[in-house]
Computed example of a mutant assay.
Amino acid sequence: MIGSNGEGRTAPPRVLHRLAIFVALLSLTALVLGFLGRWLWPFDLLNHFRVHCVAFLVLAAGVLLGLKDWKNGIVAALGAALAAIPLFDYLVPQNPASLPSSSEPSLRVLTFNVWFRNEDFARIADYLATSGADIAVLQEISEHQGRRLHAALEMYPYAYVGGASESDAIVFSRWPIGAAQTVQLSANGVSAIRVTIEWNERPITLVAAHLHWPIGPRTADRRNAELAGLAVLAQSHTDPLLVLGDFNITPWSPHFRAFLDASALHDCARGHGLDPTWPSQLIALGIRIDHCFASAHWRTLDASIGPSVGSDHRPVLVELQLAG
Rank of each mutant, 00 (worst) to 15 (best):
L227P: 08
I249V: 13
A296D: 14
L19T: 13
P93Q: 02
L64T: 05
G306V: 07
S98M: 12
R270H: 05
G79E: 04
H48Y: 11
D246T: 03
L78W: 08
N72E: 08
T238W: 07
D239R: 10
A122N: 10
A97H: 10
D239N: 07
A220N: 11
P203W: 10
A30L: 06
G286E: 04
R148V: 05
R174N: 11
L99S: 06
T29R: 03
S27W: 00
P203C: 09
G310T: 01
G310Y: 02
F256M: 05
H17T: 03
D221I: 02
H313C: 09
E201H: 15
N224C: 03
D290I: 07
D275Q: 15
S280F: 04
Q281T: 14
L64A: 07
F116N: 12
I2H: 04
R123K: 12
G286V: 02
R314T: 08
A296L: 06
G271F: 00
L107S: 07
S103W: 07
T111P: 06
E154F: 11
T111Q: 10
S103G: 08
I289K: 03
E104Y: 12
K71S: 15
S106E: 13
I204D: 04
R288T: 04
H291S: 12
R299N: 06
G132Q: 07
R9H: 12
R147V: 05
D168A: 13
W115H: 13
T205P: 01
R148N: 10
G66P: 00
I305Q: 13
T29D: 08
I193N: 08
L242I: 11
A97T: 12
N95G: 15
V171H: 02
A61G: 00
A97N: 11
R9W: 05
F43S: 08
R108Y: 04
L26K: 03
S304H: 13
V114G: 00
A323L: 05
Q184W: 11
S106A: 14
P315N: 14
W41K: 03
V92N: 01
S4Q: 06
A192G: 01
R194K: 14
E226Y: 01
I85Y: 13
E166Y: 04
R123A: 13
A136M: 02
E166M: 04
W252H: 09
S253K: 07
A151V: 04
L57M: 09
L78S: 15
W175C: 10
F112G: 06
I305T: 15
A81T: 11
Q281M: 10
G73S: 01
L233R: 02
L260M: 08
N188Q: 12
L233F: 03
L36A: 15
A179G: 12
I249S: 12
Y158E: 11
G310I: 02
